[in-house]
Design a protein around this nucleic acid. Structure first.
Lengths: 342, 342
DNA sequence: GTGAAAGCGCTAACAC
DNA sequence: GTGTTAGCGCTTTCAC
């Protein structure tokens, strides 16, 4: 193999150690070094030991860029979430990253801030990086996103929602059903004038429509739908419940798009000395860390936030190892978790 | 350029569209396509328009793996944090990712769970992926980690702490000083028997030693140091304050390693009807979202969690663009933020 | 068990 | 402005 001429070598950053360097030092060919790393069982124990000692002493770290280019496998998975600073998504990403790293995969992270265009741009960037798999939040995507993904043919897991026709695989739960279940639960507890407080993300909206459906089916009043900004959830919850208490004194129960918003509401009620659930009942979503801790402890919809990440990782890993995924649509389910706030 | 023979082509996944394909279609050479993408100003407007239309119609997405291998620049930055599910780190990662993506950089994420060995393994994996830069949490690293990083010669930013001798660059604040400032503040408010509640991460320990130093300098009693697990912070805070109230009734103020632990403590006090700060004062750290919302609002040490990420990104981007970083050690500072809890 | 040759898709350097 | 040539460092295929 020819080395780069001196003239150009000088212009570029210092060359890192390559397989060739190790091979030369160990007196074998570079392919043997490659085998020691990737398929050690195909190398004689002596050669292996010798090469391994040189790898260690020379501090050789294989260039996975070159490896990925040649093998068409990067061992990188990309995850796209609305924002990493909401604990719901952080938990999913944590599960994903932990599970993947066990198998030597790394995670590329992208944030959309709930923008479909940002999602498309990220998907294109990640395809350009030839990631082995992609994890998406939600099931609503721009046509261009779906099209790019199909063309690239890489394994995709959509998460946090359910649909009959996923792009590829799916690990989520039915937000509409979950909303309906909470509507039924609240109605069953005797609440008749309800409000829903959430952002404008499609999954939150699905929870609202589900809840609305349940409530109307029982003949209760049309529920109020309060939109809050997706930034500071605790603060949004405080403001929302304040507004409900002041402007809509008839409301006797509020269902929040997630536990953090609900916790903000609970704190505001405590501050005002408003009785929960006596004056107003509060229910959250996701059973986040804060739900059982706040006063009063929050009734919520229990879902397995962390499990979504684990499941997505397992699906992708199965694909990577050539196994076929028996259940490409995985409904992780949910359950109503009753606590003191309702 | 020769194409791969049929026999091997069949064994591999369907070939993606390459620059060559676009070039052939547009009737130019592949290097012209490359220029249209990377340095459009060097191509005549007509050629450019023609090539661009083919890029769009064929859905061509450049292979950045190949580009990275050839150019030795991957446009990937890796960030290593203890865990993404603690909001302090999630905020830093958010800032980092947002700032980097503005310049076309992507973020590889690694979690250590506070393990130094895990950090070393991640650093080696990321070097293998030839990331352009690396962001580390803290300034305490295994000797092997430092050594690998030096050898690789890639830009590194350490965060969340301060040291005179960083590996390369630094964006943080002085945890010891911050602890001392809080110790002084609490002493100044009249508290005399203090406790510190935190995990075993080195930065938390530095906050404790700083606080201890201040308190002892004033001649107050040796502060109590409570270690809590790094898992569920709210719960840890509840348990810790319960333990203090029950077993150490003399303690009149508690300083928590972060606002989430402190918030858990505040909630427990509310639950027990314990007066804050009357019976016990509570102080947090980081001025997270929860600090002003919990009842009573938490006195805390204000730091710019998000800014750490932005600064780290800016330092790296400066390096990448050849600019020299005038301030390789950036002390972001802190300040005591007084609220109702003290 | 080991090696040689070819190529992954791109950019850098230099020609024209 | 555009093209040619020669790699980047690895894996794959096939020969020994």
């Amino acid at each position: 193999m020819k080395r780069k001429p001196e003239t150009t070598a000088a212009a570029l950053p210092a060359r890192a150690i390559t397989k060739e360097d190790v091979a030369r030092a160990a007196g074998v060919s570079h392919i043997t070094v490659s085998r020691v790393i990737n398929t050690p069982e195909k190398v004689s124990p002596e050669t292996r030991a010798k090469v391994e000692s040189f790898i260690a002493s020379m501090g050789y770290i294989p260039n996975m860029l070159a490896g990925g280019l040649a093998s068409r496998r990067t061992r990188i998975v990309a995850a796209i979430v609305p924002t990493i600073s909401h604990s719901i998504f952080a938990e999913t990403v944590r599960g994903l990253s932990e599970q993947l790293s066990l198998q030597g995969y790394q995670l590329l992270l992208g944030q959309t801030n709930y923008s479909e265009e940002a999602e498309t741009a990220l998907v294109e960037a990640f395809i350009g990086r030839r990631v082995d798999g992609l994890v998406l939040t939600g099931v609503q995507h721009a046509a261009r996103t779906r099209q790019r993904l199909k063309a690239a043919g890489i394994p995709v897991v959509e998460t946090w929602d359910l649909t009959r026709r996923p792009i590829d695989m799916l690990a989520g739960f039915d937000n509409h059903d979950a909303g309906r279940a909470m509507g039924n639960y609240l109605y069953g507890k005797g609440y008749r004038r309800m409000a829903f407080v959430g952002g404008e993300d499609p999954r939150g909206v699905a929870r609202f429509t589900g809840m609305r459906e349940a409530v109307l089916a029982h003949g209760a009043a049309e529920p109020l739908h309060l939109m809050v900004p997706m930034g500071s959830f605790l603060h949004a919850g405080r403001e929302a419940v304040g507004w409900l208490l002041d402007r809509h004194p008839g409301i006797d129960a509020a269902f929040f798009s997630n536990d953090v918003i609900a916790a903000g509401a609970a704190m505001e009620c405590a501050r005002r000395g408003v009785e929960v659930p006596g004056r107003i009942a509060l229910a959250g979503f996701a059973n986040l860390e804060i739900a059982p801790e706040v006063l009063p402890a929050l009734t919520t919809v229990q879902i397995s936030v962390h499990q979504i990440g684990l499941t997505a990782a397992d699906m992708l890993l199965a694909r990577f190892s050539g196994r076929s995924v028996e259940q490409p649509i995985c409904d992780l389910g949910f359950s109503i978790l009753e606590r003191k706030s309702t």
